[in-house]
């Protein structure tokens, strides 16, 4: 633990700003452990974020880090990766950041299959601004801007990413950290666009308002309401009703954007000689 802290964290920036019971620290811990597991060169790794609670994570990480504007992390990251393809690029984002204001960038990063690993901290709410509903807030839940219950339909953001062309898509929880580290590691190793959605709890402005109990209750909820995608194959529709699938949801290989572009550069430069 101490070794990880020394190697990957800006310790002078700790303690973090997140509320007691927030799951974001667990996600950050899993991201760093995954980076360590796949042995990325910290000098060649850039971590990009947008705006919101999730997006404060890179500030604690000892890499080149870029805290951008709301929703735009993937667009900034696309510039970083395309200009310097040898860099490993990770994006840490939230449900509001990636699924609402940044939704367009998410589908296009997936479509290009650019080699970026996006970790989406899904706490089902806009936390930083005090608890407004997001595109990932389930129907019926209460938020400061949905005082009579949310009538919106939530996205299945993983299905959206798969449909848009991402080549690695997974969902994990902060309850099952071991699994989460594995999923993020595989996402980083995928040569293409990867999305890992992480179900994390916001006890302060989401759980409290929706009477979901303590942090521990919310993490138990994650355990009880998720089913591994492998186990789900053996379960009936009835058994799967209301359950959230976790694990590796999709994996494929397809040409990666910056590699394709580099091929054009190499061909033209050869022809020009």
């Amino acid at each position: 633990m101490q070794e990880l802290l020394d190697k990957y964290f800006r310790k002078d920036k700790l303690p973090h700003i997140w509320c007691p019971g927030c799951g974001h620290g667990i996600v950050l811990g899993a991201v760093v452990r995954a980076i360590d597991k796949v042995n990325l060169d910290p000098d060649k790794t850039t971590v990009v974020s947008g705006i919101g609670c999730s997006s404060r994570a890179p500030g604690y990480m000892k890499f080149d880090t870029l805290h951008t504007t709301h929703g735009r992390a993937l667009a900034f990251a696309t510039g970083v990766k395309h200009a310097k393809p040898e860099l490993n690029v990770l994006v840490l984002t939230g449900d509001g950041d990636a699924a609402a204001i940044g939704g367009n960038h998410l589908i296009h990063a997936a479509r290009r299959n650019i080699d970026i690993t996006a970790v989406l901290f899904n706490n089902n709410i806009y936390g930083m601004t005090g608890g407004q509903y997001s595109p990932l807030t389930p129907t019926g839940k209460v938020a400061t801007t949905a005082p009579y219950g949310n009538i919106d339909q939530a996205f299945d953001i993983c299905n959206l990413a798969i449909a848009a062309g991402a080549t690695y898509v997974a969902r994990g929880t902060v309850y099952n950290v071991t699994q989460l580290i594995g999923l993020i590691s595989k996402g980083i190793q995928n040569k293409g666009f990867s999305l890992i959605e992480v179900i994390t709890q916001c006890p302060t402005v989401y759980g409290r308002r929706n009477k979901m109990g303590t942090t521990i209750d919310m993490m138990k909820w994650q355990k009880e309401n998720t089913v591994n995608v492998k186990a789900a194959k053996k379960m009936s529709k009835e058994q799967l009703k209301g359950k959230i699938l976790v694990g590796e949801l999709y994996s494929d290989t397809r040409p990666e954007y910056t590699e394709q572009y580099t091929k054009i550069v190499e061909r033209l430069q050869k022809e020009g000689q």
Partner: peptide, 9 residues
């Protein structure tokens, strides 16, 4: 956004 990201490299 991409231009700013690229410039930082």
């Amino acid at each position: 956004a991409a231009v700013i990201g690229a410039s930082l490299t």
